[in-house]
Design a protein around this nucleic acid. Structure first.
Length: 306
DNA sequence: AAGACGAAAGTGGTTGA
DNA sequence: TCAACAACTTTCGTCTT
């Protein structure tokens, strides 16, 4: 994980601490003292290009928003005659030319372009609802473009393909969202998202690795307003259970929920099984089963260890 | 009264013949 | 394509705090 200290005046809104770290691959800022994760409305200050010598930097710099795959025209187009007020700024003799240009612009926007425009608007809605950073949004947009290019959209709804691409991209970025969460915002059934995801992954040649429960831990902890200490403890327990093969074959969300539940209890920030179950999208029973295994196999004396 | 626990039956998805 | 299977869910009664 690439971490960078965010220097300067930014203070943690929770505890006032100054030790904030930026994780630009996840688009999250994490407070080292209280563990608060700030992912809302984060601005990605990184450049999307690299410079190898001074000459190159001259060529690559530009003003305006970064070029983005998440805009149907990659964010670099100019539209002719947006609105009608422009017409009247022209002398009467130039108006026919204006209308001709406008007509051509509309012809150039083919059906696929318009489709893409609509799809990317939908994607924007999903990513902002799910608090996903723009870097992930870019990956999803790219995946979607590939899917369209390979004609994989045939027979599938546009929403389900976006949802599938989103699921895949989030996993690639180590910021997984659960099928439940994606299903809620996209109104595509879980089953359909999973199917499209697998199909997409195969066709585009993505490696399908099981999700690491550790990727869920910070986000769930944040939703439960648990401190950084609990997160650290939870990850430590998780690491030990991985060594004992207690995580393979189990649902990653269930495992993440269980280690958080135990860690919270140990640190003394108890949360009920119900609360943890809700944010993780599993049932209390699943948490119980995981956590019983953990206590047994790792012989953790349930309460107040350090 | 709320939370934790455990048993039993049901569901959806994967696997292997 | 079908059956077996493990993980997970739902439901419900009991015990603990």
């Amino acid at each position: 994980m690439l971490e960078k200290e965010v220097e300067g005046k930014i203070k943690c809104p929770e505890c006032g601490g100054k030790k904030l770290f930026k994780d630009s691959t996840r688009g999250e800022v994490v407070c080292r003292s209280c563990g608060l994760v700030i992912e809302d409305g984060m601005i990605d200050f990184s450049q999307e290009w690299r410079e190898f010598d001074s000459g190159e930097s001259e060529k690559k710099r530009r003003a305006g928003a970064p070029m983005s795959l998440a805009r149907h025209d990659k964010g670099i187009s100019t539209e002719i005659g947006m609105g009608y007020s422009d017409i009247f700024k022209l002398p009467a003799s130039k108006r026919p030319k204006f209308f001709r240009m406008k007509k051509w612009q509309q012809r150039i926007s083919t059906a696929t372009e318009r489709n893409l425009k609509y799809a990317l608007a939908e994607l924007k809605r999903y990513t902002s609802f799910l608090n996903l950073p723009s870097s992930v949004e870019e990956t999803i947009a790219l995946l979607y473009r590939k899917a369209v290019a390979k004609e994989l959209v045939r027979g599938r709804s546009m929403e389900s393909v976006i949802a599938g691409a989103l699921y895949a991209a989030c996993r690639e970025h180590g910021t997984p969202r659960t099928l439940d969460e994606i299903s809620e915002v996209s109104h595509v059934p879980k089953r359909e998202i999973g199917r499209t995801y697998r199909f997409l992954a195969r066709q585009v040649g993505l490696r399908i690795l099981p999700t690491d429960p550790a990727d869920y831990v910070p986000r769930f902890a944040s939703q439960l307003t648990l401190s950084g200490k609990v997160v650290t403890k939870a990850l430590e327990i998780l690491k030990r259970s991985k060594e004992k093969e207690l995580t393979s074959g189990r649902g990653p969300t269930g495992v993440a929920a269980a280690v958080l539940y135990i860690a919270a209890q140990m640190i003394g920030e108890k949360r009920t099984q119900r609360q943890v179950a809700d944010v993780a999208g599993v049932t209390e029973v699943t948490i119980r089963n995981r956590y019983k295994e953990l206590v047994r196999e790792l012989n953790l004396s349930s309460l107040q260890d350090n």
